[in-house]
Design a protein around this nucleic acid. Structure first.
Length: 482
RNA sequence: GGCGACGUGGCCAAGUGGUAAGGCAGGGGUCUGCAAAAUCCUUAUCACCGGUUCGAAUCCGGUCGUCGCCUCCA
């Protein structure tokens, strides 16, 4: 089997062939750091986290670059979003950037999103952006007007090839306030002359100003990945104009393809509508983490294909969280039984079961990173494992170890939904707590032996009230932290 | 208005030509002192209409509906 992926550029599912065998250069549009990250960011970056994890799992040497936008991203009022936040908080723009960039990484860390290999900041790559703009002017793809520079869309006939837009049609009925100095309404800024109050500014051949939003991605992707690279990712809501402009600038400047494969993630809605500040229907990642474990949130995100839209609703997340708990409970039981398991190699039955599950999982992920189908493979495997654990005859240490290893490999390394440890030991400083719980279980076992159900149930009920649930199995009582 | 995606059981969601994965919820059984967990059984003809085909959820055309983009947004 080989990896196939849906390429937005060609609107077809294609076999993945990297530029250099065994190596993948990947760029994903990152966030503008002017506020707390929300669950829409979580969807996009968890999706590409799993994609990069799977590429590595498949043996590719992946170089993953994701930018941090900290300059040039304007509101429709013409105000820079970061400067606005700085003004609102009476702080400097780079303080704002630093605050929310750190916060973004902290949220992603909490969600188990592995950091990109390089996280370049736009403000740190102004010379590269100026260089690209100079090239575009030299090649006749851009023009300067009063200290600002615009990309001449008419000079790049392929403009619109990613998003399917046709410039002429867009001009009709457009709500874009036409800037007088642009030759064509569809032209976009590469460099902007700074107004006096705009304090984020750099010297350039044209004016004291700042780069346009789109050019940062082109300049930084080129710097770290080359003029042509393998995969460009992001959210599909940026397909136009942002991604389209990236392509125009880069291909016009370099005269060759920008990215070979475009993978764009579907938009996340909250209770049916896209989140927006004006509607007030936002949920931050911190809000979500206060309510659900990161593995549950990841499971929810991965329960639909990355390219599809997903609606974040309480009931849907709860359902995914319960589904995840099934897997996690079974694996925790496996791990807790490993200490007392009889010696021996993995049985043939278990070995065959695991080999089949692994093959199925890989086949699903090879098909355009079909995580929901891969998750279903793990659910099937969970069912089989539960049956084995219910057989009574203890599984050998070899079998249990092999089961644990495969869950760790597929659910942990690839999907990122399997934590270390067991369900009973995931709270911090857990040893003392675990000891006390074990003591109560022992006392309860004595009560049960005496048929003292009142005491037995009291212990179980009160522990339940504290978030610790007990389950009596034929081979003893196990406990879980909710 | 233009572009794009989507419409699968009560809910979420896989499935791109051969008679519908998985999770959640519901009903029934097994196990258990009870409970929980687990396990077994059980609930769909795929928005609608027409067409292509021996055969379609899956291809084509149309209708209706939802969402996203076209202006900042992952």
């Amino acid at each position: 089997m080989s990896l196939k992926l849906y390429n937005v550029l060609t609107r077809k599912k294609e076999e993945f062939v990297p530029l250099t065998e065994g190596k993948v250069n990947m760029y994903v549009c990152g966030p503008t750091v002017y506020d707390y990250s929300h669950i829409g960011h979580a969807k996009t970056y968890i999706s590409f986290d799993v994609i990069s994890r799977y590429l590595r799992y498949s043996g590719y040497d992946v170089l993953y670059v994701q930018n941090i936008t900290d300059v040039g991203h304007m509101l429709d009022t013409g105000e820079d979003r970061i400067l606005r936040k700085a003004r609102q908080t009476s702080s400097g723009p780079m303080q704002v950037v630093e605050t929310y960039m750190r916060d973004y990484f902290a949220d992603m860390d909490a969600l188990g999103v592995r950091r990109p290999d390089i996280s370049p900041r736009a403000s740190g790559h102004v010379p590269e952006q100026i260089g690209m703009v100079e090239t575009l002017i030299e090649k006749g793809h851009a023009y300067e007007v009063d200290g600002s520079v615009y990309f001449d869309v008419s000079s790049f006939p392929e403009y619109g090839k990613l998003s399917g837009r046709i410039v002429e049609e867009m001009e009709e009925g457009t709500r874009v306030a036409v800037r007088e100095e642009k030759r064509n309404p569809a032209d976009f800024a590469l460099w902007k002359r700074a107004d006096p109050e705009h304090i984020l500014r750099w010297d350039s051949p044209w004016s004291d100003g700042f780069p346009g939003w789109h050019v940062e991605c082109s300049a930084m992707a080129t710097k770290y990945l080359g003029e042509t690279f393998d995969i460009h990712g992001g959210g599909i809501d940026n397909i136009f104009p942002h991604n389209e402009c990236e392509i125009a600038q880069s291909e016009a400047a370099h005269g060759r393809a920008f990215a070979n494969y475009w993978l764009l993630g579907g938009t996340l809605t909250l209770d049916g509508v896209k989140m927006s500040k004006s509607l007030g229907n936002t949920m931050t990642i911190k809000d979500a983490l206060a309510r659900w474990r990161p593995e549950a949130i990841r499971s929810f995100i991965l329960s639909s294909h990355y390219s599809n839209p997903i609606d974040f609703s309480k009931t849907a997340v709860e359902a995914a969280a319960k589904g995840w708990k099934r897997i996690w409970s079974a694996l925790s039981l496996v791990r807790s039984q490993m200490g007392a398991a009889p010696a021996g190699e993995a049985s043939e039955e278990v070995t065959a079961l695991l080999a089949q599950a692994k093959a199925n999982f890989i086949a699903k992920m090879d098909d355009d990173f079909n995580a929901p189908a891969a998750l279903a493979v793990l659910q099937d495997l969970t069912k089989q494992v539960n049956k084995l654990l219910n057989e009574g005859s203890g599984q050998t240490i070899g079998s249990l170890t092999a089961v644990d290893a495969l869950f760790q490999e597929l659910g942990g390394d690839v999907l990122g939904i399997i934590p270390d440890g067991t369900a009973g030991s995931n709270s911090s400083g857990a040893d003392r707590e675990a000891g006390m719980i074990e003591l109560l279980i022992t006392l309860r076992a004595q009560a049960r032996a005496n048929k003292d159900w009142a005491t037995s149930d009291q212990i179980r009920d009160q522990l339940k009230g504290l978030g610790v649930s007990l389950e009596d199995r034929s081979d003893g009582t196990i406990w879980k932290v909710e």
